[in-house]
Every structure is written in structure tokens, then in C-alpha cells.
Design a protein around this nucleic acid. Structure first.
Length: 924
RNA sequence: GGGCGAGUAGCUCAGUUGGUUAGAGCGCCUGCCUUACACGCAGGAUGUCGGGGGUUCGAGUCCCUCCUCGCUCACCA
């Protein structure tokens, strides 16, 4: 704290500042949360907790992370200053399928597959890779100033969290919510695993609808035409279904068809659930092993389920298929097989026609391969019972989702929830804690690995599959705090957490499941606020991504403009739920708002601190209020206003009594509004006006100079505190040089108190008159292109503003020098005689008369004033008309009518003054 | 196809329960190197609030309808 203002360099050296400061913060334990200080564990502070959406362990920082973590950091830093015991818990996700893909790709370049290595070696290699590179993303988050409690860094595949995963699985099984299902699921033929419904994303695609005619076995001249988008699966057809009420096919029900190519006999059956007579031909081919809908129909009708596609989606005569697939098709990929089958069908005259058809095709969310419906055995979680409390939580307002519109999406999904397939045929992940007995049919689900079958003592083998990676993610808000050990201080102090900040893409994958998990395992909600921010896009509104090459590396931005500039740009541009547009080809332009602001703040600090000097200023409380000038009271009142605006934009931090009040449900977390309020205060109010107004006072010095120093120091101190959450580095450097005694405010700005209003200061109208006068004169000067060097004279004529009525220059005595400097105007006494010039109308009926003799074109000013008068007259006329309308005066609320009346009075006065102005300018 | 949302200044967006002359940031135009800042200062321009209809004394705000985008879900083969 012995730094002096004088040693501030001309430019902010963000490079060296960031590295030094971040280390200081860590050394001081600024971000380490202590459960003992939290109210729930006997302390005196409200806990405030955010668990970080864990990035994939293999991830490299991109703008999406930059945005997501900046938002969290701003919120956490704000709450920390507000006196909460703030915990931001970081970590990484083992990201089963994604990480496995990375390693498989590596193996691919060596010409190997995971099967060449074997399971053990593959896991070993992946673990090694994670150990070597897994910390990268977290290091990068440190580089952008993230105020995480790194001592609590978690990892979904750590021994502790693995324990939580197993406990969760066993508990759900004990409650009858986990079952083994034999059905058609989504299968990725590249990843060779099943996927949940959410992991199979559908895209609208234009494909072909093939119409095929299956002849009647006993009368090949007749047949039924069916339509399909996947003709290669026809080899696994076991029936053709029609609607029982469909007149066209009624007499064919029960007859037998010949399945072309495969040359097997299949029946015509009736099914009213699975067949829509209005679609296609009204007849559906049934392929139970390769279509979910057909599987249901097949089950209803007890049909066989031949498999003709291998896990890799090549043609095969699998279970129940006999020799349906001709030899020359076996081994062909499904795409190639499709072409061949279509050719064969065409040759045999079975292909009726091909229509163009738009339909939703499901793709693997990790590798974008078209998924294949596949019949298999998987573990499922029964979701309906879990969804109920998650739905109720939103209805009872225990949880709010911002922005509001996502709430409907959340509700809609939960109301139509389907069971969750949690088995993955992968190697990288949590092995499913299920053992099968080799001797009997016993299935064991256990917390501890069993050595033998508990029923018959036979040898057991564990299920080969691992769990969906999201099965560990949904436990994150409590598994990271020690669960299933319910006695940990962390869990007691920090659960439930507060805000969950993420992108809408993972609302179902993660957020909704976390809420369900919170109720299922902890009995209460994991957080009270879900904040879904927008996506980072390029100038064409295309989502930034590495593969598209339109990404921005936050570390490039940091190197060029500094972390603060990055954070400011992102925060200031982040409307509620709105996307952030940035130009990857022009970082200079994209991050100009942040860079410009940081530079401006630096220059304000340099100048202000140099002028204030290094001697400690008096505390504000110690200054006799009578010694405060209009300008002092004005900036302190403006500060109050800025604090209120920031508070309103950010808060409330949490609901009272566990449920959001209707009035607060969608308030707060408006980061762009908060940032703009703080910016406006420090730049447009403190720097543009107050700082300017003190220049002459500081030069004169003395007792008044001391007052100005104190107010400057105090206002700047508060401004920096308001800005600390957004721009923590530069504010720290400037703040510690403000000459206010350290014992009055602590060591680091990051744990200084958030500013509170000082109610002694109320809106200051008299200084506003000075501002208006200066702005008005500047306008005149600009309008008439009066050269900067030419001074003008003006006289003031104030009326009625409480003890501020005078016709001489002495009322502006305090600001004479300021006016002279800012408007290059000399104030003279008004002796009552008229001067040729312009009258500027100010608030409260005051006015300033500027002598324009010899400096301006009076004719032009005359025309301008006339136009203005006409406009005002018209507006006033409309107002008078409205006020004379009984419909308005009788029905409108009293305060509205009153406001309109006041407006009428004001406008009438202005009109009179304008008329006077016109007369003086235009002559008689 | 179901559900939801959006269309306000060139761009990105604010506009609380209908009620001052519809705002901000960026961009744009003009003039300034005024001894902290040209990454700056001062001044300025710009809107049939998507179209049409309705309710009302009064509509950007409420209702209907149409158009255009977007998100989300979905087993129409």
C-alpha cells in the first residue's frame, strides 16, 4: 500500500499485472471458502455457492468457456464483496464418450483401434493422457482471473466422485428405479455404444422415401405397397401392418406376402396403434430389431426379431435372420447396402417409385454419425418419479430459470420425460456396479465388489459397460461437497448451492437431471437459480467452434488487450439470455469496448490519483457537511444512484424462505445493465464532470482542496469496488493506491465491502443547473462554430430554486472557474439591460443569457428558435387537449393527471421563454 | 407436426402492472491533439416500434390475424 500514484506508467501493463496479482490473491487465500464461517455450519455469513459446469477434461479454452466462467466469476466476486461466504467450486468432467473419442483418434493415427490395445491398456493410456493434459483448461481459467477455490477442485472420475456414482446407482436400484430393459435404443455405429435419447440429436434432412411392393404369396399379381426411408432394413421385415379400419387392406389382413430378396413369407397384420392410415400408403413394413416403433408392434404381435445389421452397421445375418441377407451383401456398410438393395428391388420390379422426403435423422452428438436403432439390453433409470419433484420445484418457485422462456421448455421436457438409458458400451467411465453369476442367474448390484455370487457362491463377472457420463454429472452439486458422506462440513455449509450458470444446450443433459438428482439424493433442490446465458457467435450469427474455424482464443485476446478487456467486453455485451456476437477476423474491433474502457479507467486513475496525491485524505464522515460544495453533493448523490442501479441489476442474490417471490422471480443477474451503470458513473459522471470541476479547486488547495481530495478519493474508491467483479486486475492496482488508510477498508479490493448508499446525499439540482448551462453553451458554440479560442460572455438569471435566486454572477462563484474552463465562458453580472444573444433555458425556470454579439449568425439562430417554438407549441396544444378531455382527467390515475398538469405548467413557461428568445434573436 | 419465443435507430439490445417529447452501447457525421486519455473530448443525425385489424381518453406495451426468423420436442414408416 506504499505505492504512489506518481509511479503509474502511461499505459496499463496488463501482462505483468495479471500474473503478479493473481498469485497474490491465491497466496492471500482470497478465494478459499471456509465452511465454519457459513451460517448453516454455525458461522455468521450467508453462504453463496456456484459449482462450475465442469469442462471436459480434454478441453482447451474457447470463448464459450470464457463467457461462461466470466459470468460466474462476476457473480461470485460480487457476492464475496457483499459479505457472503462465497465458494466457486471448479472441476473437470471425464467426459466418457468425448474423451474416449480423442484417444481413439490418436490410436487411429497409429493404425490401431482400442480393441488392439485391450480394455486395461486403453484405460491406462487414457488416464495417462488425462493426467498429463487434464489440467490445461483449469490453468487457462486461472489466466482469465477465475476466483475459484482451487483447493476443492473436483473430477468426475476421481475415487471420491466414483464412490458417489456407485452409491447413487445402488440407491436407485434399491428404490426400484433402475431396471434392465430389452428394447430398441439409439446406437452409434462409430462409437459402438448406445446413446440416450438426448444424445441422439435430430436434424431435418431431405432423403428419399422408397415405395416397395410386396407381392401376395399365393397371388403375385397382387400385393401391398409400403414406404420406407431405410430400404436395406427390409431384409429384416417380419410383417406388414395396416390399420384394422382401413378399407383398402381389410381383406388382406391375415394373408401372406413374399418378402423380396430375402424370399421369406411374412403375414399382413392389423395394428391400430402403430399405423397411421393417412401416411404414405397406409401400410407399414415391420422391422422389430431395427426400429423402435416396429419393436413395439413386434412385441404386441409376438413376432420374431431378426437382426441384419452388425454393431458397425454393416449387413450381417444376425440373430433370427437365418440367411435373409444374400452373401454378396454381407459385410457391406449400410449406405452401400442401401444402394445395392434398391438396385436389386428395381431389377425385380418391386420398386414402385422414389419420393423426395424431408424427415428428422438422428445423429450422434459426439461424432455426428447417423445413429442406428438397435435392439439390445441396457440399464435404464425410471424417470417419472424423479421428474415430479423437479417439476414441482419450478411450480413452487423454489427454482427459477432465467431467462424466463426456458422455463416452459424445461417443464415441457419433464412432463414428457422418458426413461434414461445409462449404459454405454465404452471403456472410459464408471463401470456399472452390477455382477452376473456364471453359475446361476443371480444379478448382484452392490456398493462393494462381490467376490462370489451371494446366492450360490459361484464366480461372478462385472457388467462390461460403463455409465453415461452424465450419470456422474447429475450428482455434481453434492458429490463435489463430500456426498455420500453426509457428515462433511462442506455439505452442511454449502448445499444447496445458489446459482447454476450454463448454456441452454445442456438444460436437459445436465441441469434438469441435476435438479432431479438433488431431490432424489439430498431431498432438496441443488440451487435456486438457473442462469442460461447465450452463445458466442460470429458476425454471421454462426456459433463459434473449433471445427468451423470461426473461434476466438481467449488467450489471444488476453495477450493483446488483457483479461480485464476480455471480461468487460463479454459482460457489457451480455443481455439476459442474448447471444454475444464477436468477429474472429477483427479482434481489435470486437474487444474495443473492453480495451477502451480499461484504458479510460487507467487514465482516470492516473490523473485522479496524481491530483489527489499520496497524503491520506480525511474520511468522508469527518468532513463538515457545510463545507461540501454543490459538486461534491452531486457526485455523492450520483454514486448513490449508481449503487442502486447496480444492486437492482444484480440482485436479489437469493430467495427468502426458500421460494422466490413473484416480484423477484425474474429480477437480477442483468450483467450488462450492471456494467453499464458502473461504467456510466465512473466515466460520464465522475470523470467527465466531477473530476473536471475539481481541477481549479485542487490547484487552489487549502481547506476546500482537502474536501475535493476526500470526495474524489471516496468516489473513486466506490467506483472501483463496483467494477471489481468485472475488471478485477486493474481495479486492484488502482484501488490500493488511493490514499485512504488501509485499516479503514482492508487489504484487497476483492474482499473489500460492496458499496452501500449514503442517505445523506440526495439528488443535487443546483449542480444540474451548472451542467445544463455548460452543455447549453457548448451547443451554442458548436452550432455557430465559435472557435475554441474565442471566449464568450454570459449572464445568469436564476429564479426560485430554493435560496438560489439571484441576478449576479456570485451564485456561480463556486463554479466560475469550472465554467470558464469547460465552456470557455466568462460569467458577468447582468445589469438588466438586454444583450444581443441567445437565452438558454435551464431547469426550475433559470436561464442563462449568452452574449453573441459579433460571434454568431443571429438569423440562423432565429430560424432555429422559431422551429423549436413551433414544435413545442404543437406538443403543448396536444397536451392541453388531453387535459381538457374529461375522459382522461376522470379515468386516468390521479398521479398521472398531476404529472401531466405539471408538465403543462413547465411547457407553458418554456414556451414563454422560447417566445422571448425568438423575439430577442429575430428582432421586432 | 406439438410447445415456446422473437421482430423497436445501420448493428446488438433495454423499454416494469397501458400514461412525460420511445432509450442505451457500438457504428455514422461534424469540430477539436482543451497540459489523464485521439483506446480521447465536444456537438449532431437517425425510428410508418414486422404488416393489418380491434379494445381504450390514451397502445411499442393488451386482444385477433397475417408475414418473417429462431429455439425446443417428436416412433409418421
Amino acid at each position: 500500500m506504499t505505492d504512489t500514484a506518481a509511479d503509474l506508467p502511461t499505459l496499463f501493463d496488463h501482462q505483468s499485472a495479471e500474473a503478479t496479482l493473481y498469485k497474490e490473491w491465491l497466496d492471500a487465500g482470497l478465494f478459499t471458502a471456509d465452511p465454519a464461517r457459513a451460517k448453516r455450519a454455525g458461522g455468521d455469513r450467508d453462504p453463496f455457492v456456484i459449482v462450475m459446469p465442469p469442462p471436459n477434461v480434454t478441453a482447451v479454452l474457447h470463448m464459450g468457456h470464457g463467457l461462461n466462467n466470466t459470468v460466474q466469476d462476476v457473480i461470485v466476486r460480487w457476492r464475496r464483496m457483499c459479505g457472503d461466504e462465497a465458494l466457486w467450486l471448479p472441476g473437470t468432467d471425464h467426459a466418457g464418450i468425448a474423451t474416449q473419442n480423442v484417444i481413439e483418434k490418436q490410436l487411429g493415427t497409429e493404425g490401431k483401434t482400442r480393441f488392439d490395445l485391450g480394455r486395461e491398456a486403453f484405460i491406462e493410456r487414457t488416464s495417462r493422457f488425462v493426467a498429463e493434459t487434464g489440467g490445461t483448461i483449469l490453468d487457462q481459467l486461472r489466466a482469465i482471473g477465475a476466483s475459484c477455490d482451487w483447493s476443492r477442485t473436483a473430477y468426475t472420475l476421481s475415487p471420491e466422485l466414483s464412490l458417489a456414482v456407485r452409491e447413487a446407482f445402488v440407491q436407485l436400484h434399491e428404490r426400484g428405479l433402475i431396471y434392465r430393459g430389452h428394447r430398441v435404443i439409439h446406437w452409434c455405429p462409430r462409437c459402438l455404444t448406445s446413446l440416450s435419447d438426448e444424445e441422439a440429436e435430430h436434424n431435418e434432412e431431405t432423403g428419399s422415401l422408397y415405395h416397395l411392393r410386396y407381392p401376395l404369396a399365393d397371388d403375385p399379381s397382387r400385393g401391398i405397397t409400403i414406404a420406407t426411408t431405410r430400404p436395406e432394413t427390409m431384409l429384416a421385415d417380419v410383417a406388414v401392418a395396416v390399420h384394422p379400419d382401413d378399407e383398402r387392406y381389410r381383406e388382406l389382413i391375415g394373408r401372406t406376402l413374399t418378402l423380396p430378396i430375402a424370399d421369406v413369407q411374412i403375414p399382413v397384420i392389423a395394428d391400430e396403434i402403430g399405423v397411421d392410415p393417412a401416411f404414405g400408403t397406409g401400410a407399414v413394413k415391420i422391422t422389430p430389431a431395427h426400429d423402435a416403433n416396429d419393436f413395439d408392434m413386434g412385441s404386441r404381435h409376438n413376432l420374431s426379431m431378426p437382426v441384419v445389421l452388425s454393431p458397425e452397421a454393416t449387413m450381417v445375418n444376425g440373430a433370427d435372420a437365418g440367411s435373409r441377407v444374400p452373401d454378396h451383401l454381407i459385410g457391406l456398410d449400410r449406405v452401400e447396402a442401401r444402394a445395392r438393395v434398391v438396385e436389386m428391388l428395381r431389377d425385380s420390379g418391386v420398386l414402385v417409385r422414389i419420393d423426395s422426403h424431408t424427415h428428422a435423422v438422428r445423429h450422434c452428438y459426439r461424432c455426428d454419425t447417423v445413429v442406428e436403432p438397435r435392439l439390445s439390453d441396457q440399464w435404464f433409470v425410471k424417470m417419472k418419479p424423479l421428474a415430479e419433484p423437479a417439476l414441482a420445484a419450478v411450480h413452487k418457485r423454489q427454482i427459477r430459470i432465467l431467462p424466463e422462456r426456458w422455463e416452459a421448455v424445461y417443464v415441457n421436457w419433464l412432463e414428457n420425460i422418458r426413461d434414461w438409458n445409462i449404459s454405454r458400451q465404452l471403456w472410459w467411465g464408471h463401470r456399472i456396479p452390477v455382477w452376473y453369476c456364471d453359475a446361476c442367474s443371480e444379478v448382484t448390484v452392490a456398493r462393494e465388489d462381490p467376490a462370489a455370487c451371494p446366492k450360490c457362491g459361484g464366480s461372478v463377472r462385472q457388467d462390461e459397460d460403463v455409465l453415461d457420463t452424465w450419470f456422474s454429472s447429475w450428482l455434481w452439486p453434492f458429490s463435489t461437497l463430500g456426498w455420500p458422506d453426509k457428515s462433511t462440513k462442506d455439505l452442511e455449509a454449502f448445499y444447496p448451492t445458489d446459482d447454476l450458470v450454463t448454456a441452454p444446450e445442456i438444460l436437459f443433459f445436465w441441469v434438469a437431471r441435476m435438479i432431479m438428482g438433488g431431490y432424489a439424493f439430498m431431498g432438496e433442490t441443488p440451487f435456486h437459480t438457473v442462469y442460461l446465458h447465450g452463445t458466442v457467435r460470429d458476425m454471421k450469427h454462426v456459433k463459434m467452434s473449433k471445427s468451423l474455424g470461426n473461434g476466438i482464443d481467449p488467450l489471444d485476446v488476453r495477450a493483446a488487450f488483457g483479461t480485464d478487456a476480455l471480461r468487460y467486453t463479454v459482460t457489457a455485451g451480455l443481455g439476459m439470455g442474448a447471444d454475444v456476437m464477436l468477429d474472429p477476423n477483427d479482434l481489435e474491433k470486437s474487444f474495443a469496448p473492453g480495451r477502451n474502457f480499461v484504458t479510460k479507467l487507467w487514465n482516470i486513475g492516473r490523473f485522479l490519483l496524481t491530483n489527489v496525491g499520496t497524503d491520506a485524505v480525511q474520511p468522508l464522515d469527518a468532513i463538515d457537511p457545510a463545507r461540501l460544495r454543490r459538486a461534491d453533493r452531486w457526485i455523492l448523490a450520483s454514486l448513490n444512484n449508481a449503487i442502486s442501479e447496480c444492486d437492482a441489476a444484480l440482485g436479489p442474490a437469493r430467495p427468502e424462505n426458500g421460494a422466490w417471490k413473484e416480484s423477484e422471480l425474474y429480477r437480477g443477474l442483468r450483467l450488462s445493465e450492471y456494467t453499464e451503470s458502473a461504467r456510466r458513473f465512473v466515466w460520464n459522471e465522475l470523470a467527465d464532470w466531477y473530476l473536471e470541476s475539481t481541477k481549479s479547486r485542487l490547484a487552489v488547495g487549502g481547506a476546500d482542496g482537502e474536501v475535493a481530495r476526500a470526495v474524489l478519493a471516496h468516489s473513486f474508491d466506490a467506483a472501483l469496488r463496483l467494477l471489481q467483479p468485472v475488471v478485477p486486475f486493474i481495479t486492484d492496482i488502482l484501488w490500493r493506491r488511493i490514499p485512504i488508510a488501509t485499516e479503514d477498508r482492508g487489504d484487497f479490493i476483492a474482499r473489500a465491502a460492496w458499496p452501500v448508499r449514503d442517505e445523506r446525499f440526495t439528488p443535487e439540482s443546483e449542480f444540474e443547473i451548472v451542467r445544463e448551462a455548460i452543455v447549453g453553451i457548448r451547443q451554442l458554440r458548436s452550432d455557430y462554430a465559435i472557435p475554441p479560442g474565442q471566449r464568450v460572455q454570459a449572464s445568469l438569471d436564476t429564479v426560485g430554486a430554493g435560496g438560489f435566486a439571484s441576478r449576479d454572477a456570485t451564485v456561480f462563484q463556486e463554479e466560475t472557474a469550472f465554467l470558464a474552463r469547460s465552456a470557455r465562458t466568462d460569467l458577468i453580472d447582468n445589469d438588466g439591460s438586454t444583450m444581443n444573444g441567445a437565452t438558454i433555458l435551464l431547469s426550475s425556470g433559470s436561464r442563462i443569457h449568452v452574449s453573441l454579439e459579433g460571434v454568431v449568425d443571429l438569423e440562423k439562430e432565429c430560424r432555429k428558435a422559431r422551429t423549436e417554438l413551433e414544435k413545442l407549441s404543437a406538443q403543448l396544444e396536444a397536451l392541453v387537449k388531453r387535459l381538457s378531455n374529461p375522459g382522461f382527467t376522470d379515468r386516468a390515475p390521479a398521479n398521472v393527471v398531476e404529472a401531466e398538469r405539471a408538465k403543462q405548467t413547465e411547457w407553458t413557461a418554456r414556451k414563454a421563454q422560447l417566445a422571448e428568445k425568438v423575439a430577442s434573436l429575430c428582432g421586432t
